[in-house]
Computed example of a mutant assay.
Amino acid sequence: MLPSAPSPVAIGITVFRPDAAQVAALSARVAAETRPTIVFDNGGLPASAAAQLSEHGARVLSAGDNIGIGGALDAIARAAMEAGAAQVLLLDQDAAFTPGQVSELEAALARLRSVSPPPAVVGPRPEAAPGRKAPSYPRRPDVPDGGSLVPVEFLATSGSLIDLAAYARIGPFRSDFFIDGVDLEWCFRAWNRGYGCWMETGTALPHRVGGGVIRSTWLGIEMPRQPLFRMGAYLRNSVYAWRLPHVPRRWKLRQAAYLPLQALLYWADSGCRPSVLAHLAGAVLDGLRGRLGRPKGLS
């Protein structure tokens, strides 16, 4: 159970089929953490590991099935608010983020209280873990920097410190997106509803998205190497987001030019298999028709 005394910051960690090393690292983190910790099991966390985490003071949540990252993050946010927390730091099972860095983000959020628009979220500068590609956060136009704090269009949820009062007004993450684009859509919605999203350049978090990097010198792009179901979900959700009024036109135009190149590069990396092309085309069609939810091909 979570501590009875409210804490300004709760830690929320999502897990999905963690391996033994990830379970061990998670257990050590929970044991060393003084802040209340909420772990959401989206599937694959051994019962013995869940029991050990609970013994160390974490609250372990599960829906009994994989409900996607959006649903898991919303469950964590609700639990954090019920525990009396004012902010929640979201992490995935791979994130190596120290308690000191949590304090740095907490201080950054406090510095942003005097700016307009008020902050919804602040996160660290992204770095690439070895052999991976770091996400990039486009700068938000027409909003000045605040020292080491840079206004950005969106941030990855892992490493993000969310103001829970702002979250209550902005609304929950889109559970029907399931996995990809959840963070992007929520941040665009935050800006649209009068809140800001900020990157603290003074602290960094390595990202381990995908299983390597796909590069094309000819096309001038690189992207994470993802399972087919994730690439399909990314295309589907990106195409669906074109109909959302709070997603800026500049982003829609950028994606309209970029998505075909990414799909082509992914297909070429697969060996130009017809089944992969059919899956990607079907994902785009699902996005156009608004068929969201659990991605096709996810076991």
Rank of each mutant, 00 (worst) to 15 (best):
D65R: 15
D180M: 13
C187Y: 04
G57W: 12
T37W: 06
P141S: 08
P18T: 07
L184G: 01
L89R: 13
P260I: 08
W267G: 11
A95V: 10
L292P: 10
R225I: 01
A281P: 00
S270P: 06
Q52T: 15
L292M: 12
S148A: 15
W191M: 13
G220F: 00
A50H: 07
E153Q: 13
R243Q: 14
W198M: 06
A204M: 02
T157W: 09
P141Y: 09
D145I: 02
R111A: 05
V115Y: 03
A50E: 08
R132P: 01
S116C: 05
G212Y: 03
C272T: 10
E55S: 09
R273A: 12
P118R: 09
F178E: 10
E55K: 09
G71E: 05
H279V: 10
L149S: 13
H56L: 04
I162Y: 12
Q226I: 00
R169H: 15
A5D: 05
G100E: 14
V209E: 12
W191E: 13
P138H: 08
L219G: 03
D163T: 13
P144G: 11
T157Y: 07
R189T: 07
I221C: 03
V102Y: 00
R29S: 05
P8I: 02
G220L: 00
V60G: 12
L53I: 01
M81P: 02
N66K: 07
E106C: 02
F188E: 12
Y195A: 11
T98A: 15
S270L: 08
A20S: 09
T14K: 01
S299G: 15
R111G: 00
V30H: 06
S27F: 01
H279R: 15
I221W: 01
G171F: 00
R139S: 06
A134G: 12
R35L: 13
Q93I: 08
F173M: 12
L164D: 14
V39Y: 03
G212R: 02
S114G: 04
G12L: 04
A96W: 03
W267R: 11
A129Q: 05
